[in-house]
Amino acid sequence: MSKISARRPRSRPARRAAAALAGAAALLGLAAAHPAVSAEAAPVDTVTVGAAPTADFGDCPALPSGVDPARWRCEVHSAAPRLTMGTVTMTLAPITMTHAEGPLPDGTPGQVWGAMHSRPTAVPGGLTGIPAAGHAPLARLAVQPEYGGRSDFYTGRFSLRFRLVSPLLPRECAIGASTPVDFALKRSGPSRWVSTEPPVIEFSAYDDAFAAPGAEDCGPLTRPLDRRLGLPATGGNLLSYDATYTFRTYDRLPAR
């Protein structure tokens, strides 16, 4: 590139984007002096991405070879977890997970992961933590849980990434991008059968011992985001998981 072309003024859109990024970074720095904003303290910003998850059996995974379909069941469970991570507390939009479980040919318990669906949930106060600033389009911030690649529904263990969604953040920006957040749920009480046909069971569980890593792959806003969200946080985190699930054995599922 010649010196003349390198000195060419930037276009108006480029200048506006740079100014917006600088302004958001400055606001994020100011937000560190303000107390954390909880979901009750301010109205939730509106973020609409994708459709609401559905609890059907379309995500049931293929079974391992040699197992008895009548002894394996596909489970679909949905929850709207309450999450405290770092300095932010919020109720996440409903999450739906599907998996299969049953005895393997040697008699040991087996599991197969199916799928997870979720939607972004707006973070009160947006990128800044200041309620009024959080409603500005460029300052909005939302969290979308994504499957982290590990699950064991016999023991209540699974992992999630939390994608951070904002006009000023790259698509890959996430909490737990390289090392997902690991949860080990403990039951809050016994399960409750709501219905036997179809089977519908409710249960409550929680994890108050998980560690939350910092944000990753968020460009120049990575460190300001960590200050804004109080990350990384090794303690003080809580996932309250009130869920409902249903199931069907594989011999009763529609043929594919």
Results as ranks from 00 to 15, higher is better:
residue 139 A to S: 10
residue 34 H to K: 10
residue 226 D to F: 00
residue 246 T to N: 07
residue 73 R to P: 00
residue 132 A to K: 10
residue 104 L to K: 12
residue 109 P to H: 09
residue 20 A to P: 00
residue 44 V to Q: 05
residue 192 R to Q: 15
residue 59 D to L: 05
residue 117 H to D: 10
residue 191 S to L: 12
residue 77 H to I: 00
residue 20 A to S: 15
residue 96 T to F: 01
residue 72 W to N: 02
residue 31 A to E: 02
residue 154 Y to S: 11
residue 63 L to Q: 08
residue 167 P to D: 13
residue 40 E to Y: 07
residue 224 P to C: 11
residue 155 T to S: 15
residue 251 D to E: 13
residue 59 D to R: 04
residue 143 V to M: 11
residue 123 V to S: 02
residue 235 G to Y: 04
residue 88 V to A: 06
residue 167 P to Y: 13
residue 141 L to F: 06
residue 72 W to C: 02
residue 179 T to S: 13
residue 113 W to F: 15
residue 8 R to W: 14
residue 49 V to I: 15
residue 24 A to C: 13
residue 14 A to N: 10
residue 146 E to G: 11
residue 54 T to Y: 00
residue 94 P to L: 02
residue 138 L to I: 13
residue 24 A to H: 01
residue 172 E to A: 14
residue 36 A to R: 01
residue 238 L to T: 09
residue 38 S to P: 07
residue 114 G to W: 01
residue 91 T to Y: 04
residue 61 P to Q: 09
residue 52 A to D: 12
residue 155 T to I: 13
residue 147 Y to F: 15
residue 84 T to R: 07
residue 202 E to I: 06
residue 67 V to N: 06
residue 191 S to K: 13
residue 250 Y to D: 10
residue 177 A to V: 02
residue 61 P to L: 04
residue 246 T to H: 05
residue 40 E to G: 05
residue 138 L to T: 13
residue 182 D to Q: 10
residue 187 R to G: 09
residue 41 A to H: 07
residue 18 A to K: 12
residue 26 A to H: 08
residue 55 A to C: 12
residue 205 A to N: 03
residue 246 T to V: 07
residue 14 A to F: 08
residue 248 R to A: 13
residue 11 S to H: 09
residue 48 T to W: 06
residue 60 C to E: 02
residue 64 P to Y: 10
residue 162 F to T: 01
residue 96 T to C: 05
residue 151 S to M: 08
residue 5 S to V: 13
residue 215 A to V: 15
residue 80 A to V: 01
residue 193 W to A: 12
residue 169 L to N: 02
residue 207 D to C: 06
residue 115 A to Y: 03
residue 226 D to P: 01
residue 101 E to Q: 15
